[in-house]
């Protein structure tokens, strides 16, 4: 138990954060695209994420919650070290979250202001999340290399969210907005690819511990499927984005799935690179872990509620399936 529980929890935490990056990723991406759309399109774009964003955001609360439940020793150390990006991200999420409601409830003369707040909040949240990830992967060192690396991910993640967001819009919109979304997707696919490539190259440079793990045999061969499958998926995405008619027939979800798979592969790579540490080079998951009694008590709840959560999440997505229409509170 003492051996397995931390592993189970780190897996649950990884899953929650992966789901968060995909789900809140697409709605933050839509937020980033907002300035490029006209007034009417903005309403549709926000309507396409309106029923989901709240639950999407809850996954990060679960992710950080599991960190807190299972690894209280690391929770404090990680979040203290990430104090500034975390604070900025929170402010961004606050601004974005309230803008959802206030842009339609504070009166038409304020709508412009709240649309800007929506964009700004999404941007700040996305960049800070990249910054946090970058700082975390380099072991929370706070030196120049790790700052540069954090900056690189801080730029890559928003690009990735842009691609996710525009692909989401391909699935949820039609007509002129669909055409725009297609342009946005084609435009964002290159920076996303370059960013991911740069991050892959920079990771072993920024972290000696990770370089040691990657470039030894047989690890190197074992890990090879990850970059190879990412390359294939990426090429597939680029190719599919050229097939206008096919996308118009409603197959844009294939691209979304491909992006999710890239995300999954990257997470597996990351998980492999970090395991069994919770703070690279400082603390293992066992050293950081809470007591067995506390972990078991919560695990019972997770085993019961997580399937239920997944079930009704899917239910909600089914209820709001299809193209988005303008949402009205009336």
């Amino acid at each position: 138990m003492e051996f397995w529980l931390p592993i189970i929890y780190v897996a649950i935490m990884g899953l929650a954060l992966l789901i968060y990056v995909v789900l809140d990723g697409y709605d933050l991406g839509v937020g980033l695209l907002l300035p490029a759309a006209d007034e009417w399109e903005k309403d549709i774009m926000i309507a396409s994420i309106g029923p989901f964003w709240d639950a999407n955001e809850t996954w990060i609360v679960l992710g950080v919650g599991v960190l807190l439940i299972a690894f209280p020793m690391a929770h404090g150390a990680i979040l203290t070290a990430l104090y500034i990006p975390v604070t900025l991200m929170l402010m961004g999420l606050i601004l974005r979250g309230v803008a959802f409601d206030l842009r339609v409830k504070a009166g038409d003369h304020r709508k412009q202001l709240w649309n800007r707040a929506f964009f700004l909040g999404s941007l700040v949240a996305a960049v800070s999340q990249g910054w946090m990830l970058g700082a975390y992967v380099t072991g929370l060192r706070g030196d120049l290399t790790s700052h540069l690396f954090a900056l690189l991910i801080g730029l890559t993640l928003p690009a990735f969210y842009l691609l996710l967001g525009s692909t989401w819009l391909l699935m949820k919109t039609e007509g002129a907005l669909f055409d725009k979304a297609l342009r946005w997707a084609r435009w964002s696919v290159l920076p996303t690819g370059l960013g991911l490539l740069a991050v892959s190259v920079a990771t072993p440079i920024a972290s000696g511990a990770i370089a040691a793990k990657w470039f030894t045999l047989p690890n190197f061969i074992g890990l090879l499927p990850i970059p190879v499958s990412c390359l294939v998926l990426y090429a597939g995405i680029v190719w599919l984005l050229r097939r206008d008619n096919w996308l118009r027939e409603g197959y844009s979800w294939v691209i979304f799935v491909a992006i999710v798979l890239i995300c999954l592969m990257a997470s597996l790579g990351l998980a492999y690179s970090i395991y069994p540490d919770i703070i690279i080079g400082e603390m293992t998951i066992w050293e950081a872990s809470a007591s067995v009694s506390s972990l078991l008590f919560t695990l019972v709840g997770i085993v019961i509620t997580l399937p239920a959560i997944l079930f009704y999440t899917i239910y909600v997505y089914r209820v709001f399936r299809g193209k988005a229409t303008e949402l009205s509170y009336d």
């Binding site: 639950a55 809850t58 609360v61 679960l62 919650g65 599991v66 807190l68 439940i69 299972a70 209280p72 020793m73 929770h75 809470a290 007591s291 009694s293 506390s294 008590f297 919560t298 709840g301 997770i302 509620t305 997580l306 959560i309 009704y312 999440t313």
Partner: peptide
């Protein structure tokens, strides 16, 4: 954390998502 973690965790799992 052995007390605070699980109680907060149950709040997220049973209430927030719902």
């Amino acid at each position: 954390g052995n007390v605070a973690g699980p109680l907060l965790g149950y709040e997220v799992l049973t209430a927030f998502f719902l």
